[in-house]
Nucleic acid binder design. Structure first.
Lengths: 144, 144
DNA sequence: AAAAAAAGTATATTTTTATTTACTAATTTT
DNA sequence: AAAATTAGTAAATAAAAATATACTTTTTTT
């Protein structure tokens, strides 16, 4: 049983591949890594310190120092001292940073919507339910 | 309706994010781009010429010349002239290249299986069905 | 209180990626 | 048949990413 589920999951990854790589395109003026960091902060929905980002994205902390400095200079993120650990610095997205990510997601959204329109109403209903269920269960799996 | 579906789809992307980024880790001796190319060839399941790869991965063809050359020297891919277009060269994975990608997918597979085991039998059944349905419909959308 | 560890910074160096320009050979278009 | 495109290569350069080393400050461990 688990084997079959895993196979379906593996098949899903390439299906999502295109949308995923769209996230790294058309990033006005940001390098790949800068974009990754902004994207990661957006996904995590909370302020992170450099160590969190370093672990999450598998980037050396020495690299992050400069990446974050440049992102800050560009107005995409802000740094604030962590009151609970005075060694640490909390990085969070500015409205400008949020907006940039939003625009990219909007493009993915629109592309996807255009394709969904090709499905029949019944298929659309099925897809909505299947995606919903998938999301709930995947989330549950990760959390527990 | 479409709006709701798109939202579920957007929520799915971060859920798959982790597995996806695992594809770029632990790549013995290959650079990111080299790994991307190997991964892409694996996903497409057919020989591709440089232009195909260039378009698919958004990499300049000049870059690919060297990337492919190094991959070939490493024994991961082979080049063969395209008999239908003598300007073109078809690149395909060698058994060694295949094996390398397989190992990575196996790791993802095992990680995922471990997590699925936490779900109840009923939830597992639901997940299998939901993933299956999702895959079928996403594939249908893209093809049409 | 001293020692060890952790978060972040700084600097230098090497390796990868990206970009520009220019070229050959084969294919398509006119 | 000539002109324009296209696939791929080549080489030089610039920019970005990765790695190694060393340091300060704060926190945790002993």
């Amino acid at each position: 049983m688990i084997e079959e589920i895993a196979k379906e999951y593996m098949a899903l990854i390439p299906n999502v591949f295109d949308s995923f790589s769209d996230l790294n395109k058309g990033i006005a003026g940001l390098s790949h890594l800068q974009n990754h960091v902004v994207e990661y902060l957006y996904m995590q929905k909370r302020a992170l310190n450099l160590k969190d980002i370093s672990k999450g994205l598998n980037i050396a902390k020495q690299q992050l120092t400069n990446i974050i400095k440049d992102l800050e200079a560009g107005g995409y993120v802000t740094k604030a001292p962590d009151t609970k650990d005075r060694r640490a610095v909390l990085v969070s997205l500015t409205p400008k940073g949020m907006e940039m990510v939003n625009e990219k997601w909007t493009r993915i959204y629109q592309k996807f919507s255009g394709q969904v329109a090709k499905l029949s109403t019944e298929e659309q209903f099925d897809l909505k339910y299947a995606l919903h269920k998938t999301n709930i269960l995947l989330k549950k799996m990760c959390e527990e």
